[in-house]
């Protein structure tokens, strides 16, 4: 039995990873492992490059939270929509965006996924239905509901996933949106990436109600607590919520308990938590868990595992080369992508 790999934060449904009968296929585990490893290595490298001052701005890493994206993506369809906050590097990786374009965006280069105009906090990839990357805490909550509103208006059965942190759950926009999303039965899944810290402030220091899933109760929104260190449990919760949304039953709130191993941003000394706490969560690491399942079930040989690891390392290496060899946007790009109107008369002096 995989004793360590099934460790979960409190208050979640118990479930065991079995080496005998897996609910999920070999292919799913391999894809989860590969995608999460790519996210992890991208973020580790992004952190290093940031410290080396290869690029500026803010840099918020997703390390530790990968299972949330992996389980969400595997539970949804390519025609569904995804929107998140500024901790947005892993979502497009999970959706299949080329890491070269993402790395180039971090570097502010013209080949970046947002042409170097958005940076770390504003990744967008329309081809993958990834609608950002939003810098104002909680602003994406109503916008994500609006994306879902449009799908319902058009009569599709597509679902919109809107992710936000436990900090954003304290914004008024959340309550206004929950109310309307329930009133209009919008096909949206509200995903709290609950890493237990709003920047440096723990959940218990910001609220009387520790259980974020209760925030849906006032609006009678179905709400669930999910183990975010387990891609399996995230997948099952998202699949259930997506099915409800596709049937016209409206939104679901998923309070996904996860953990970021790194600070809020690169300048965070993390004095608000202990090293033991970080270590405890690292012992439940979703990537290690998937690797264990793969090994226990002999889904891959050691060589094949090594091939994946080498492929990931090479992707990251090539992404950095691509970014560093790309040009910055030309100066005339300053006045482009501000208006759709082509001849907008900007005020330009000196």
């Amino acid at each position: 039995m995989a004793a360590k790999s099934s460790g979960k934060p409190k208050k979640t449904t118990k479930k065991e990873s079995s080496s005998k009968k897996q609910k999920f296929s070999k292919e799913t585990y391999i894809k989860w492992y590969k995608d999460m490893l790519l996210m992890r290595k991208f973020e580790e490298k992004a952190g290093q490059l940031y410290i080396q001052q290869k690029f500026g701005g803010f840099c918020h890493l997703y390390i530790g939270q990968e299972a949330v994206v992996a389980g969400t993506v595997s539970a949804t369809k390519p025609t569904d929509f995804h929107m998140t906050a500024y901790r947005d590097h892993a979502h497009p990786i999970g959706l299949g965006t080329d890491v070269r374009k993402l790395m180039a965006e971090l570097y502010g280069r013209e080949t970046g996924v947002s042409k170097g105009k958005g940076g770390s906090m504003h990744f967008f990839d329309k081809e993958k239905n990834f609608l950002g990357g939003h810098g104002i805490v909680g602003a994406q909550i109503p916008m994500g509901a609006g994306v879902a509103f449009a799908e319902k208006y058009k009569g599709t059965d597509n679902v919109t996933m809107v992710s936000f942190g436990d900090g954003a759950a304290r914004q008024g926009a959340l309550h206004e949106t929950f109310n309307m999303a329930m009133l209009w039965k919008l096909p949206v899944i509200f995903i709290v990436e609950n890493n237990n810290y709003a920047m440096g402030t723990s959940v218990e220091r910001t609220t009387n109600v520790m259980d974020l899933s209760k925030l849906g109760s006032s609006y009678e929104m179905p709400s669930f607590v999910v183990n975010g260190m387990s891609p399996e449990e995230v997948h099952e919760a998202v699949a259930m919520a997506a099915e409800r949304a596709r049937k016209g039953e409206g939104p679901t709130l998923l309070d996904i308990k996860t953990y970021r191993y790194k600070g809020h941003s690169m300048s965070d000394p993390q004095k608000y938590r202990t090293k033991d706490e970080v270590k405890e969560y690292q012992s439940k690491d979703p990537i290690e868990h998937c690797l264990k399942v793969i090994k226990d079930n002999s889904y891959l040989t050691e060589e094949e595992i090594k091939e994946i690891q080498d492929w990931v390392a090479n992707e990251i290496k090539e992404a950095i080369e691509f970014a560093e060899n790309s040009d910055y946007p030309s100066k005339d790009e300053l006045y482009k992508d501000v208006y759709k109107t082509e001849d907008y008369p900007f005020i330009i002096e000196y």
Partner: peptide, 21 residues
């Protein structure tokens, strides 16, 4: 008709405009 929730319904409209409406 919307509830009295300017931030919320404006955000929903902005999201809808990003998605073709």
């Amino acid at each position: 008709d919307t509830p009295i929730a300017e931030l919320g319904f404006t955000g929903i409209a902005v999201g809808a405009s990003m998605n073709g409406l």
